[in-house]
Design a protein around this nucleic acid. Structure first.
Ligand code: MN
Ligand code: MN
Ligand code: MN
Ligand code: MN
Lengths: 148, 148
DNA sequence: AACAAATTGTAGTATATGCTATATTTTAGC
DNA sequence: GCTAAAATATAGCATATACTACAATTTGTT
């Protein structure tokens, strides 16, 4: 067990505001990323299957249908999707827009990782998490790398 | 409003298990990332200030000290830190190990983004989120890029 | 049309992370 | 040593995301 010394000299606040920035941004990214994954997947399902059903979303995300139902309710409140009881899920214009932007960024991140030399399987898994923390500046840098 | 058609032909389950993989991994990463950020910061504070106090952690992360207290309780349950009432926070051996690994990875991701041409400010913010979704394979690829 | 299977809804629960407001304790300055 | 400020603790609350268990509805097949 470590010795517990009492503090003696209150050090002046080390530059914290800048550090807090990054963490705040990450927390905001996380609040947004479920929405991005959902609308991207819903858009995919509609194109591939003709419609997006809760059960398919659940299987794709690896969660139960109950979790999907609750999340969809949140997305509906935010104006990203529409849904009616016992019916499949649709994207609003706003949702479709977010889906397209999310997919583009996702694809670019994936292509970038592969171009960097990451094995496809690992690249796919990592991209699923990384994609939500990419600022426009970093996206630009990845684009430049792909064009090199 | 979109037309709500009833489903006609239940499509066979599109390959879902592989897709679910990435999402499951991302959720696991998120469960781990608060721990990583905390122990890394605590290690920093101990080195720079001699000790890690809840109020400093709070300022660095941009949350209230109450949030820090609760999170520290969780980390203590997981054996990463020790704490006593009205005393500063210490890392266990396990916590120190995680902190060192997290910092190394964090630094590498940051260096990589900068080398890629991302402005330092954006790189610092993005790295804070990205670092937690980097598999060993991707880390290797980044190392190779830095050595190129 | 009736039945079984699939799908969706609902109730109740759990955990993690965040907050404000207030009480307590420690620290620092006099 | 007192006292005020700083730090920490505690109570109460809110939200997001996840689950199991069970009820209701829809769909596909006989
Ligand atoms: Mn994703
Ligand atoms: Mn870090
Ligand atoms: Mn981080
Ligand atoms: Mn993340």
């Amino acid at each position: 067990m470590p010795v517990r010394t009492r503090r003696k000299n209150p050090r002046r606040a080390v530059a914290t505001e800048t550090a807090a920035h990054g963490h705040r941004r990450t927390r905001m990214d996380h609040a947004q990323e479920l929405a991005e994954d959902y609308v991207e997947l819903i858009d995919d399902l509609i194109q591939k299957c003709g419609e997006a059903r809760a059960v398919d979303i659940a299987r794709h995300l690896g969660v139960t249908h109950v979790t999907v139902t609750k999340s969809i309710a949140r997305l509906q409140n935010e104006g990203l999707v529409t849904s009616a009881p016992y019916r499949s899920i649709f994207l609003t214009d706003k949702g479709r827009l977010l889906a397209r932007r999310a997919r583009e960024r996702h694809r670019l991140v994936l292509d970038f990782l592969i171009a960097l030399g990451v094995p496809r399987n690992d690249a796919e898994i990592d991209a699923e998490g990384i994609e939500h923390h990419i600022s426009p500046r970093t996206l630009d840098a990845m684009k430049r790398f792909l064009k090199r």
